[in-house]
Amino acid sequence: MIETRGLTKRYGPVLAVDALSFDIRPGVVTGFLGPNGSGKSTTMRMILGLDRPDAGSARVGGRRYHDLAWPLRTVGALLEGRAFHPGRSARGHLAALAASNAIPARRVDEVLALVGLTGAAGRRAGKFSLGMTQRLGIAAALLGDPEVLLLDEPVNGLDPEGIRWIRDLMRTLAGQGRAVLVSSHLISEMALTADRLIVIGQGRLLADTTVAALSARSASLEDAFLELTAGTAGYRGRPA
């Protein structure tokens, strides 16, 4: 569903993403794993056409993101950090995004119910807790019932109940045949959620494998991850 080929992004002298090539398949949760600053968020922004690659390409279903007919109905994304105006209600925020891709208004209420925000839909989103903020982001990602989901650090700052909710949701979405790419720097979370793993460090591909295969390499998945990324930690790219 997603193919990147030689994807490269440079910020001044820093190579944030270095000739990254991988495929994301439908029907599975793919964990996108790497230390902080390893280029995960930059890669996701390039897939979404928000940042322009210096070389290489990213395609979704064989097309450049820029050329998608109805982007939100093909790809749903939760990016890191807030992505809504604090003075606008959750319903207003989702209604605006829905309108841009001719998504029927009733879908707004559907996704609000799905993420458990129906009761807070009319409140200004700036007053939301971190957990509600993440739920609003997920609702926006699900608006277009997309075949591909990109979730950048979705469990950041969530309580255990919220973490389990997102984990179950991702598994459900993959079970419905969607491609789910979820980034994290938390190896333990990926062990519970992901089927496949793409591990990067300093913008370079370190492993494209399954959770089972990577775990088998060392005493634990965590050990395997730390061996793989040894020496690549540190902040090199744009802050994640």
Binding site: G81, A83, S100
Partner: peptide, 18 residues
């Protein structure tokens, strides 16, 4: 500018890449 301040611009441009 409020879209840049709030981060909404990324949602907007992901919805409408042109």
């Amino acid at each position: 500018t409020s879209e840049y301040t709030s981060g909404l611009i990324r949602g907007t441009l992901a919805a409408v890449p042109r």
